[in-house]
Design a protein around this nucleic acid. Structure first.
Lengths: 147, 147
DNA sequence: TATTGTTATACTCTATAACTATA
DNA sequence: TATAGTTATAGAGTATAACAATA
């Protein structure tokens, strides 16, 4: 057990607690998803494609708040694993229509279960009402930030 | 304004909202701290040293949840800027007693103001009661995770 | 035996800038 | 002119493994 240090004013800073909570939730997520070998970032992409079949790489990138150049390697990884297919867009020859393969759909479905389980670990110190409060407040914050 | 995409089940995942909120708060922090050129990670270190004069690098690392090897470059940076001093520990010849220089104290004091201001930007969509609720819930989560 | 600080090394995630092919 | 995908490149931030000095 690590000794307790006085963290001083950090204890009153939202930024600090957000960062620590995010690191914890990221680690829980990675542990829970071990069997699928899907990272948090990849899971976001799978979810978006599952919910919006045929969307473009640029649209995925915008929706997740990253650059489209960053998305290339992510899609490459998912494509190489056979989870995502780049199909030609029927309406725009510049863009790829992203879809999940059958295996991609299976991995995504299983991943969603595991992601929910990891959420329960992350919030295990909170009762149901508190967990709902927390996600509601975060959602409100993020919506206002255009996220 | 980016087009609205259906984010599907991501909208119910704590992990997702934590990550987005953390990225937003990180960006707000970096913007607010521009005049000091202090990063979030550096600010955490400055705060810890200010609140626990003479603490060791390993203790700082443990308290922030990173490896002590990671801390070396962080302290190097702060030392090179003249904000932090590595003094010999009076009780353990292996370890450095970290203290803030006079300039370090000034930069930290100014940084704390700016960090609080950035917190207010980050939570600007929430009223005072909601902001307190949010930080309280995060603190509870983190305490339970040993953070 | 265990811990402190350090180095060497590598990995992940991300961004910027420039290119091409389309729109 | 602007956008989609791509490449090359670089910068944070982090970890692991090993080492000498000290506890």
């Amino acid at each position: 057990m690590p000794e307790k240090t006085n963290i001083g004013p950090l204890n009153d800073l939202m930024t600090y607690h957000l960062r620590r909570a995010q690191v914890t939730s990221f680690n829980n997520f990675t542990d829970a998803m071990a069997e699928t070998q899907v990272t948090p970032g990849q899971f976001g992409v799978l979810t978006l494609i599952a919910s919006n079949e045929g969307m473009s790489q640029s649209a995925v990138a915008r929706s997740l708040g990253v650059e489209r150049s960053t998305m290339v390697a992510v899609i490459d990884g998912l494509e190489n694993r056979g989870l995502v297919l780049r199909k030609p867009s029927p309406t725009d020859r510049r863009s790829n229509a992203l879809v999940l393969s059958d295996e991609g759909k299976e991995v995504y479905a299983r991943g969603l279960e595991l992601a929910k389980k990891s959420d329960r670990v992350t919030t295990s110190a909170l009762n149901d009402e508190e967990a709902v409060q927390l996600v509601t407040l975060l959602r409100k914050m993020n919506s206002a930030a255009g996220v």
